[in-house]
Simulated scan of single mutants.
Amino acid sequence: MKALSYHGRHDIRYGEVPDPAVTSPTDVVVQVTTAGICGSDLHIYDGHGFSPETGYTPGHECVGVVAETGSQVTRFKPGDRVLVPASAGCTRCGTCAAGFTARCEHAESLMDLCYGVSPQLQGSQAESVTVPHADVNLVHVPEGISDEAATVLTDNAPTAWYGCRRARIQPGETVLVIGLGPVGLMAAQSAFAMGAARVLGVDPIADRRAFAATLGVEPVEGEDAPTAVRDMTAGRGPDAVVEAVGSDDTIELALGTVRQAGRVSVVGVSQNTAFPFNMGMAQIKELEFAIGLCSVHYELPALIALTQAGRLTPEAVVSHRLGLSEGPAAYELYNSRADGVLKVLLDPAR
């Protein structure tokens, strides 16, 4: 089949790879109809991947149709329309059974849990993908939810909701979102759905700030974001901050701008093993700090219901739709942050 593969820094290739197969009676092969490129895929693209190996298919966001099922699969049949959550649980431990797949008791690393970060679980930027333990790791897509919305629901929207939930956003509060890519924009939508009165947004790219404003976000303008945030909150600071970038600078911005006794929730992917966390500052501010990886399965029921009710519009963050064969150029575009790029979707039929 045709797929993308990762061969080193800034080296994504489109070509033939082995067909996925049902190798266990609990497997399902999904024919991909839409795949997404995630911001965390750019870590891999930039040479800061989660595995030193190359040659594997990246991607952990896709929607498709069941093509083949193993003999022990009971919840799905060929022709079912499904979304593939970014994380895959073992289904045997208690945490996975409760939906917290990111905390799987049998996983030794992220490579055991997430599609497309190593050869251990081949990714979904392909014509088809194998889903292990499919009765738990697949989700039916309800009628009325588009492929675009469903693809965002595989990772970006759940990550954003998880970040807001862990920030404990309360009705009437002011929330700051740092990073206005797809996760940040979905965090803004989520904060409003949770009752935030105001959502402020920080991003260095003017096009992203302008688009966020169409969703009700108040863009933080100027080069001095801390001062601007203080001015916009009468010197108090936001009640909660959701950080959706993962860089040292943006995490420090979150910690520095949040109000006294405020909450900071980091969902941006950080690979810094020695982040200089200012414990004294955090203690004096009586700060609450949360960081983690989203268990998509746990968040999805609420998000699907909110999407069906029109309270969330995941498809709003999609800016570009390209063919899978254009994958190398799609990565280059997304990495450049040019042309108003937000969410890039890939069509395996092209």
Rank of each mutant, 00 (worst) to 15 (best):
K2D: 15
L4R: 14
S5N: 07
Y6H: 05
Y6K: 03
H10R: 08
D11E: 03
I12N: 02
R13N: 02
E16A: 15
D27R: 03
V29W: 03
T33A: 09
G36D: 12
G36T: 10
D41K: 05
D46Y: 02
G49N: 02
F50I: 01
S51N: 04
E53P: 02
G55V: 10
T57L: 03
H60C: 02
E61M: 03
V63A: 01
V66L: 02
V66G: 03
A67Q: 04
T69S: 02
Q72P: 00
P78I: 01
R81M: 06
V82D: 04
G89L: 05
G89T: 09
G89N: 09
C90P: 11
C90V: 05
R92A: 12
T95Q: 10
G99N: 04
E108A: 08
M111I: 06
M111T: 13
D112W: 06
D112A: 01
S118G: 00
S118D: 00
P119S: 07
P119K: 03
L121E: 00
Q125D: 04
V131D: 05
P132C: 02
N137G: 07
L138F: 08
H140D: 13
G144E: 06
I145G: 12
D147W: 11
D147L: 08
E148K: 12
P158C: 09
P158H: 11
T159W: 13
T159V: 14
I169S: 01
P171A: 01
L176A: 10
L176Y: 04
G179M: 10
G184F: 14
G184K: 12
L185H: 14
M186H: 14
A187H: 11
F192T: 01
G201S: 08
D203N: 10
D203F: 07
P204C: 12
P204W: 10
D207R: 09
D207C: 08
R208C: 14
L215T: 03
P219F: 02
V220F: 09
G222R: 05
G222C: 07
E223P: 11
A225M: 03
P226K: 06
T227K: 15
A228T: 15
T233K: 06
G235R: 07
G235K: 06
R236I: 07
A240I: 00
E243V: 09
A244C: 15
G246V: 14
G246W: 15
E252M: 13
L255H: 08
G256D: 14
T257M: 10
T257E: 12
V258M: 08
Q260L: 14
Q260P: 09
A261H: 12
A261G: 09
A261K: 12
N272G: 03
T273G: 04
F275V: 10
N278K: 15
M279P: 01
M279Q: 14
A282S: 15
I284K: 13
K285P: 07
E288C: 04
G292F: 06
G292V: 04
C294T: 11
S295D: 11
L300V: 08
A305L: 13
L306M: 15
Q308P: 09
Q308D: 13
L312Q: 11
T313W: 07
P314M: 09
V317K: 13
H320K: 14
H320E: 15
G323Y: 07
G323N: 05
S325P: 03
G327F: 01
P328Y: 01
A329D: 04
A330P: 01
Y334T: 12
Y334K: 13
S336M: 00
G340K: 05
G340Y: 03
V341T: 10
D347M: 06
A349R: 11
A349H: 13
